[in-house]
């Protein structure tokens, strides 16, 4: 089952509402034991990077999240939950992130209205699983002051498998979604992005179920021909 990690993030209820609406089975938890048994993990997030990392640490979840991601458990990080994947953030320079992806989160530069608040249009990388069935150029909802710059992303260093799943433009291009193997992250809030956002969450739920079936075929449901 999908574990939605409860570490005190403000928008937890919205993610739960969207999953319930999609009839996706999930359990909200802050228990390390449950997270370690999850077939997929969603880390929602809105608020402060430092608060999030401290909460995750006090719940004993940091090594578990790293381990799960290392064991190919599908992970979706939303907003701060995407930031958590990286090495760190200017929002709380003293606290490292999970560091499963390289790069650092920065604050939007002077001259822009910050937070970026509202609907921005994505340039979706063709073939990404997260955006399957979503027409190019979708509008999705953002509410954030910190972001992943394009040049901080691994794309330039790792052309074999660039993790950028979508870019958006706010002053300049920034990374709006990442996708690599079992790791997914969205800077925007799919749970607040209308039909398109629901589709993205459903895509994650479906690919998580597929992954679970691959890993334990005996529990994968009816295979009787």
């Amino acid at each position: 089952m999908i574990s939605v990690v409860d570490y005190g993030a403000g928008n937890l209820r919205s993610v739960e509402n969207a999953l319930r609406y999609l009839q996706v089975p999930f359990a909200t938890t802050s228990q390390a034991g449950e997270v370690s048994r999850a077939s997929a993990i969603i880390l929602p997030g809105v608020g402060h990077f430092g608060h999030m990392m401290r909460s995750l640490e006090s719940l004993g979840l940091i090594p578990l999240l790293r381990e799960a991601i290392g064991k190919d458990v599908p992970y979706l990080g939303i907003c701060l939950g995407m930031h958590a994947l990286y090495e760190g953030s200017e929002e709380a320079p003293a606290l490292p992130g999970l560091g499963v992806l390289q790069g650092g989160i920065r604050r939007f530069p002077e001259g822009l209205k910050v937070p970026q608040m509202g609907w921005n249009q994505l340039q979706v990388t063709p073939g990404t699983r997260l955006f399957q069935g979503v027409e190019d150029g979708p509008f999705v909802y953002f509410a954030h002051a910190y972001y992943l710059p394009v040049d901080e992303d691994e794309a330039s260093r790792d052309r074999e498998s660039p993790p950028v799943a979508a870019l958006a433009d706010y002053g300049s291009n920034f990374v709006a979604a990442v996708e690599r193997d079992n790791i997914f992250g969205t800077q925007f809030h799919p749970e607040k992005s209308g039909e398109i956002g629901l589709r993205i969450l459903r895509n994650f739920a479906v690919l998580s179920q597929d992954q679970a079936k691959l890993q334990s075929p005996s529990r994968g449901g009816s295979r009787v021909g």
Binding site: A143, G197, L198
Partner: peptide, 29 residues
């Protein structure tokens, strides 16, 4: 918030952190 998946704001009568928390944890953004 169970059926509308776009941002929702609530104003009026919010005078303390507790008031805000009740509304935000109910699904407002």
């Amino acid at each position: 918030a169970r059926q509308v998946f776009i941002p929702l704001a609530v104003g009026g009568g919010i005078r303390a952190v507790g008031d805000a928390r009740r509304i935000l944890t109910s699904g407002a953004d």
